[in-house]
Computed example of a mutant assay.
Amino acid sequence: MDNTRSYDIAWLPGDGIGPEVTREALRVLETVGSAHGFSVTATEHRIGGAALDETGGPLPGSTREACLESDAVLLGAVGGPQWNDNTGEQRPERGLLALRKALGVYANLRPVRVPEALAGASPLRPDRVGGTDILFVRELTGGIYFGTPEGRTGHGARSTMAYSEDEIERIAHVAFQRARRRGGHVTSVDKANVLEVSELWREVVTEVHDDCPDVTLRHLYVDNAAMQVVRDPRQFDVVLTGNLFGDILSDLAAALPGSLGLLPSASVGGTVGLFEPVHGSAPDIAGQDVANPTAAILSAALLLDEVGETAAADAVRHGVDATLDAGFRTADLAAADEEAASTSAFGREVATRAADSVLQNAQTP
């Protein structure tokens, strides 16, 4: 097949298990690309602790420029115990924050799916959690994490939650656009009964909804939303919320599938999208070929969605589901009496099944 489309990926393996899991994501990207008529070229660059050790800073200028010039960025994870004593701009995590700022991304997308094959791994009852498919749309650059004034005041401290109408409007548009591609329902989460900034949030989201009458909108207070995520997660389609509430709720929902190794994320809205697994660098298992690459592979599927290769993205998700349906489990999911698949073996199985789904679809009359 003559590849007429090509994508340049800035590959930032990061630290710990980052190189292992993103390597499998690249394997899957290259395989489905070949089957769908496009090519993927990945160029490796340093970030986080690896960059600190090599260049003295967590985000070298060369990495920053390469990311800005790429079609997408695939990131592993940053950090580890060897850099725990670093402070300020010498923290590995500073590289990630600086990269997000450089790319201008403001919308964090975190899908939480519980395939029926893994419902038994959830801390909730399988009949309650199986089939869950939620997309959290979290505002990434505003809210209490970035509000001023802040700091210590005598024997107290202050952090300020602040949002402008423009910030709320742009993240609301992202949520409604995503809902149109999914189940057509947005749940906006706030604390409008207590916080004035949440009153503004609710007003602006409602105004944006006026332009999207084909999407259903409801509002929930954040405390009720937290309860509902645990009580009945399948009621949600797209959850729209600010930075703080989104951070907490998406981490709560991350427990539903039973392993952080299953959860991808995307940060979009800027010049170039950033795609990374939710989990950390897990230095205790780094280099052992036992980490779960699913989150990194599904992050690659989100990458394909963003560059317009939606059929290939669906093939990747099918490959993951088919591999799980076939009984393959990495160490974090395998039962005590089961043989766990290695990181590389799981990645190969997903790539094979993703490519097979393309061939099967092509042969279907």
Results as ranks from 00 to 15, higher is better:
R5N: 07
Y7C: 02
I9W: 04
A10N: 08
D15I: 04
P19A: 09
P19D: 05
E20W: 06
T22W: 08
R23I: 01
R27F: 04
T31G: 03
V40D: 00
E44F: 11
T55Q: 03
S62A: 15
C67L: 08
L68V: 07
G76C: 09
G79W: 05
W83T: 03
D85M: 13
E89L: 15
A98G: 15
A102F: 07
A102Q: 05
Y106M: 06
A107Y: 05
L109P: 01
E116V: 15
A119R: 13
A119F: 12
L124C: 03
R125Y: 07
D127M: 06
R128A: 15
G130L: 08
T132R: 01
E139V: 12
G142N: 04
T148V: 09
G151Y: 04
G151P: 06
R152P: 00
G156T: 14
S159H: 13
T160E: 02
I168P: 03
I168H: 03
R170G: 07
I171T: 12
A172I: 05
V174S: 10
V174L: 04
A175R: 01
F176I: 00
Q177S: 15
Q177M: 06
R181L: 15
R182F: 07
G183R: 08
G183I: 02
S188I: 00
K191N: 12
A192C: 10
E196C: 03
S198H: 10
S198F: 09
R202F: 07
V205R: 00
V205T: 03
H209W: 14
D210R: 13
P213T: 08
N224W: 08
R231G: 07
D232P: 04
R234M: 11
V239C: 06
G242R: 00
G242L: 00
G246F: 11
D247W: 07
I248W: 05
L249T: 11
L252Q: 14
L252W: 07
A253S: 13
G258V: 02
L262H: 02
A266N: 06
L274S: 09
F275R: 05
V278T: 14
S281Q: 03
P283Y: 12
P283L: 13
I285V: 14
I285W: 08
V290M: 13
V290N: 12
A296P: 01
A300F: 09
L303V: 09
E306V: 04
V307A: 10
G308E: 09
T310C: 07
A311W: 07
A315W: 04
L333A: 12
L333W: 13
A334I: 06
A336H: 12
D337S: 03
E338K: 14
A341M: 08
S344C: 07
S344W: 00
S344P: 03
A345K: 05
V350Q: 02
A351M: 12
T352Y: 10
T364V: 14
P365E: 11
P365C: 10
